[in-house]
């Protein structure tokens, strides 16, 4: 009876061996991973330097103007400016720049890899069948799992943070790019072909422009998912606002937690609204 009530089998996986193998791999190819690590770290600090050059008042002004232009309401523009001002006021301006540079680095890499991949998958049935389960897995895997290999291969700091964030955030841009290109009105594509477009003319002059609003929605989601990794990545040594939240949690400092958390939320909201507005304003362009 015991047999029916309790799962009777057990596969004795030698987890240590697997870990050992992966660790061995990372050690053997340490040079390779080091190059990537240094590259990523430099990329993040480059972005950070650039953000550092932008005076605080200019960034606030830009946010306000963009908010005004996109929403058509001066009040909203003012609100966006005020929200950013608040981050400076509570002393998180520099931490915000660090966080932004990690997020932006991850998003740039996600787009550089994700857009071409999405285009490739959209036009190739085989690639699509292979990619779909991989993307599903990437999306449903608990994010913490990504931290382990990121740390193993790239140790601690901003580099593994960018890697983990990219793996997590790249999925929507691939998915939505591919989906967007596939759902372009078939008659419009027929029209493009009927007028003698080559494959690449059809892709660049018709499919991608027609798909652009949905592709931009994917970019927006990627950005949001990258933002959502900020705190998680602080556990593997990413600095910035996420780290501030982590410290607050560890030390049970409620006020610090609330303020740093609010700053993260403000940045997320601003980036979301501004990129969404960009999608909507991206209407008809002339030939």
């Amino acid at each position: 009876m015991e047999f029916l009530l309790k799962f009777p089998f057990r596969w004795n996986i030698d987890m240590d061996a697997i870990d050992e193998a992966v660790r061995g791999f990372s050690v053997r190819h340490a040079a390779f991973f080091d190059v990537i690590k240094v590259g990523l770290r430099e990329f993040v600090s480059l972005l950070q330097t650039i953000l550092g050059w932008v005076p605080w008042w200019l960034l606030i002004l830009l946010a306000a103007l963009a908010g005004w232009k996109i929403s058509g309401s001066k009040k909203i523009g003012l609100l966006y400016g005020a929200m950013l001002f608040f981050i400076g006021l509570i002393g998180y301006w520099d931490l915000m720049n660090i966080t932004l540079s990690i997020v932006l680095a991850s998003v740039v890499i996600s787009l550089l890899l994700g857009l071409p991949l999405g285009i490739l998958i959209s036009g190739n049935e085989k690639a699509n069948t292979i990619a779909r389960p991989i993307l599903d897995t990437m999306q449903t895997m608990p994010v913490f799992v990504y931290l382990i290999p990121a740390v193993m291969f790239f140790s601690l700091g901003n580099a593994p943070a960018v890697i983990a964030t990219t793996i997590y955030a790249i999925v929507p841009v691939i998915r939505l790019t591919s989906h967007a290109i596939r759902q372009v009105d078939p008659e419009v594509i027929e029209a493009a072909k009927a007028f003698g477009s080559t494959k690449s003319q059809t892709l660049w002059k018709v499919q991608i422009p027609q798909a652009l609003p949905t592709i931009m929605a994917g970019v927006n989601q990627t950005l949001m998912m990258a933002m959502s990794m900020v705190v998680t990545c602080s556990m593997i040594g990413a600095r910035g606002l996420g780290n501030e939240v982590l410290i607050a949690v560890n030390r049970s400092e409620i006020s610090r937690g609330i303020f740093s958390g609010t700053a993260v939320v403000i940045i997320a909201i601003l980036m979301d609204r501004l990129t969404q507005g960009w999608v909507k304003n991206d209407g008809v362009k002339q030939s």
Binding site: E187, F195, S197, Q210, K285, Q286, S287
Partner: peptide
């Protein structure tokens, strides 16, 4: 040989001129 479609097959990201000029543009 060119073609006209039942549901027009026009490209919504281009204005009228951009649509009409499409065939000439790609050649």
């Amino acid at each position: 040989i060119t073609m006209v479609f039942q549901n027009f097959g026009l490209m919504s990201h281009r204005d009228v001129l951009g649509n009409v000029a499409y065939g000439l543009e790609i050649r």
